[in-house]
Design a protein around this nucleic acid. Structure first.
Lengths: 147, 147
DNA sequence: GTACAGCTTGCAATAAAGTACCATCTAGCA
DNA sequence: TGCTAGATGGTACTTTATTGCAAGCTGTAC
């Protein structure tokens, strides 16, 4: 019943494998940042993650958190979420899923619904892009903001 | 054959109506910023738009461009595009359409394809959000970056 | 276990993107 | 034409992100 713990273990293996494949070191910082991200579903920004991580690894620097996140994105262990705010938000879940964001408070919630995964991904658009993946961005108003 | 000119005229009417409805003034700055945005399809950032607009309205300030864009978004004449970069990008096209962005150069291209507009928009998700709209974000590699 | 090479980190400085404040100016209206 | 609310310009500042470099740590070879 501890699905977060399972997910974290899985992500850690993902990180080990990614580091090995890319000749990168398995540092404490990389482990801790990934761990902190994997246990939340609110798609935090780099600074939010920095705040969370400072408590558990004294002395870690803000720069490192930014750099680690970029590295994790680079090796595919973490993804950056598309959002209309002016800052990066991260997600440890890298399998295709979708998001709904509240237009008032900018909260982002996951949508795992197989009905939305049936979109026919064209191999080429009219603009000549090579398609890789897609994700649906729903916009709406969250329960907290509806009052 | 001058569809950009037609679109600009249409947007200008849209702006007039939006200003009237909201008790806002029709300033030159608002007109020029909207005009500059309406003639491009590359979803520029506020600073890119500032550069474009400086040439045609001497003395316009960066602050004003940022403010005008927020106002235009507020009255629904312009929209902010969801993107994984850490800056806002704007679009004068407010009817539902989708985007593909190049993971290398961050170029964003429009996708107007009725096949992608058939998604069944649930009235409520499991998270209790009230749904408003959606947009599909495709990711891929653009022709220029494929070399 | 020790030592080495190279990647990583921390810190400080800097850049980029966005916001706040306030005096001045302008659009819209009588 | 003159008045008034609201908008702009300019500056200062905040937030978010990036760069450069010295010191430190990871992974490997012995």
């Amino acid at each position: 019943m501890n699905s977060i713990a399972t997910f974290k273990t899985e992500k850690l293996r993902h990180l080990e494998e990614g580091c090995r494949r890319n000749g990168l070191a398995m540092t404490v910082q990389r482990r801790v940042v990934l761990d902190a991200l994997a246990e939340r579903t609110d798609h935090p920004s780099a600074d939010q993650l920095y705040d969370a991580v400072r408590g558990r690894l004294r002395g870690i620097s803000r720069t490192t958190v930014y750099r680690v996140l970029e590295t994790l994105v680079g090796i595919g262990v973490v993804q950056k979420i598309s959002n209309p705010e002016s800052k990066a938000r991260y997600d440890a879940d890298t399998v295709r899923h979708h998001h709904i964001h509240c237009i008032h408070c900018q909260k982002i919630h996951d949508i795992h619904n197989p009905a939305f995964d049936q979109i026919q991904l064209p191999t080429e658009t009219e603009a000549g892009f090579t398609m890789i993946d897609y994700s649906i961005n729903f916009s709406g108003i969250c329960p907290d903001c509806r009052s």
